[in-house]
Design a protein around this nucleic acid. Sequence first.
DNA 1: CACGGCGATACCTTTGAGGTATTGCCAGCA
DNA 2: TGCTGGCAATACCTCAAAGGTATCGCCGTG
Lengths: 310, 310
Amino acid sequence: MEARHLRYAVALAEHEHFGRAARELGIAQPPLSRQIADLEREVGVRLFDRTRQGVFPTAAGEAFLARARRALDEIAAATVDAGRAARGETGRLRLGFIASALLDPLPGVLSRFGRERPDVRLELHEMATSRSSPALVAGELDVAITLGPPRGAGAEHLVSVPIGRDHVIAVVSTAHPYAGRQSVSADQLRRQPLIVSAGEDEPAVVAGLRALLGTDSSALGGAIVARDVHTIIGLAASGVGVGLGPSRMRAVPRPGVRFCAVTPRTPLPDLVLSFAARDHSPVLRAFLDTIRTNCPEVGAALDDRLRPQT
Amino acid sequence: MEARHLRYAVALAEHEHFGRAARELGIAQPPLSRQIADLEREVGVRLFDRTRQGVFPTAAGEAFLARARRALDEIAAATVDAGRAARGETGRLRLGFIASALLDPLPGVLSRFGRERPDVRLELHEMATSRSSPALVAGELDVAITLGPPRGAGAEHLVSVPIGRDHVIAVVSTAHPYAGRQSVSADQLRRQPLIVSAGEDEPAVVAGLRALLGTDSSALGGAIVARDVHTIIGLAASGVGVGLGPSRMRAVPRPGVRFCAVTPRTPLPDLVLSFAARDHSPVLRAFLDTIRTNCPEVGAALDDRLRPQT
DNA sequence: CACGGCGATACCTTTGAGGTATTGCCAGCA
DNA sequence: TGCTGGCAATACCTCAAAGGTATCGCCGTG
């Protein structure tokens, strides 16, 4: 049985007349008669009563037509759905990201993407840089935002693009003596209780702080350790010490704290966007496009990627 | 687009390999390649990624396949449903009947029919004989049980079959002096307060009672009038009079009442089953078959009707 | 570098969908 | 009662396209 048989049966039921149904279908009457006869033979049941007053479906015909109409609807929807999926209007995007990305690029990116692609299901997973890379390689993530490029087995199959530079700044309570300063020096910091992020998951950050404060500095050894930037800011606001973190912290206006530059300027690893090189999913392409329009410092690799659109 | 394209796409997605999918489909590999290519051209989107490791659906392909599978399921179900409808296993039966039919033939008929055809939707409408006939002619009913054959415009397009003879019996409270009697005479009845059914809808019953009691009898004029047989029995049980009704009343065993024959034996119109002569619906045929096996007095017309089964 | 597996392409065969002409079957009507 | 008109079915033909066979081109592998 072919879709043609369903279309013909539905048309015949609609026009109740072989000649008119055939004209509507753009064929002659005899082929329609034959197709309907073939269909009835295949189903093994008379589907239409041919009367002098017109052609009407039997009880079996009504049951058949109900299914036939649904089948035709599904077929039509199949093409539509495939097109929407191909344009990246539907589907799924699994994004891994480090917590600090929630400060700066993600709010804008996600709200814009959600507006442009309301039917794409977003799955958001906060995770450390070290976990994103294997998840991408294993196909458990579609895209990741990490601190520095991903490393480890399979990383050569990933495309990585810097989407934001970063450096260390300090955050203090408004009541803190440093609150009014434009910048603080490494020496000044060494004399304060410090609040830094836990180093296990992001060793690059620890390296940056060591470069600033000195490898053997006791300041780092005695520092309060927090799980993520949000905790650092919260602790700094409570006045227990001077928080050190990425300059992206400035993106969250928060009453009770002030931000100060740190001298010397201490760069942190770039914020990096990664995805599987083989992945040509249109949803990913759409997401990359949103990233590009939202992140001024995006690298040229993304432009290369976005040019050859199908 | 034809069902063939859907079947091929589904098979290809399942085997992830053109050669194996083609073998499974009973065709050679090149035709399958061409059909898939045609499908992708028609949908306007690449549905499968051909990799060294195998053939896998793209995001668009997944969306397409979901619809395709549902469409194929509908097509398969269409044949099944048509067959079931043709065998009368599904569908609808609208039955009109007089209230007294609920006493005798209907309980057995309906319970048997409901057991044999659990997926047929039964619509039951209690109505007077005079209303059944036009409802059948207008196509608002599929079958009706009436008192005597239907009359009126269009009745010649109906087939009517007697399914039960009937005569007048009396019903009295167990405390009534007649309670122990085998039969009561017309003379005895004329001396009692009587309970009879309302005559407007069933003039044939009134005619029978007149024949029994005499046209000018004051007994009928002073009788208590009830809407239906169930009320007659209830009133008789309460002792306000002697109920007169169809012998089918005996079918409802009810504490507190006794039934007596009436002399002379006074026939009532036959219980008649009617349906449109043009109606060859398999559900109707199944119902007629149930009627035949359940009603011993069914006429030969039903046998004629049931013989030429498709 | 040769080999093998796989999908695509080229070209042929054959099925069957669709077209034209005609028949058969009533219903309405003179 | 025969005539006519409308409609579906039948007969027969044509041609598009589905399917088959042979082959190519492209890698990845030993």
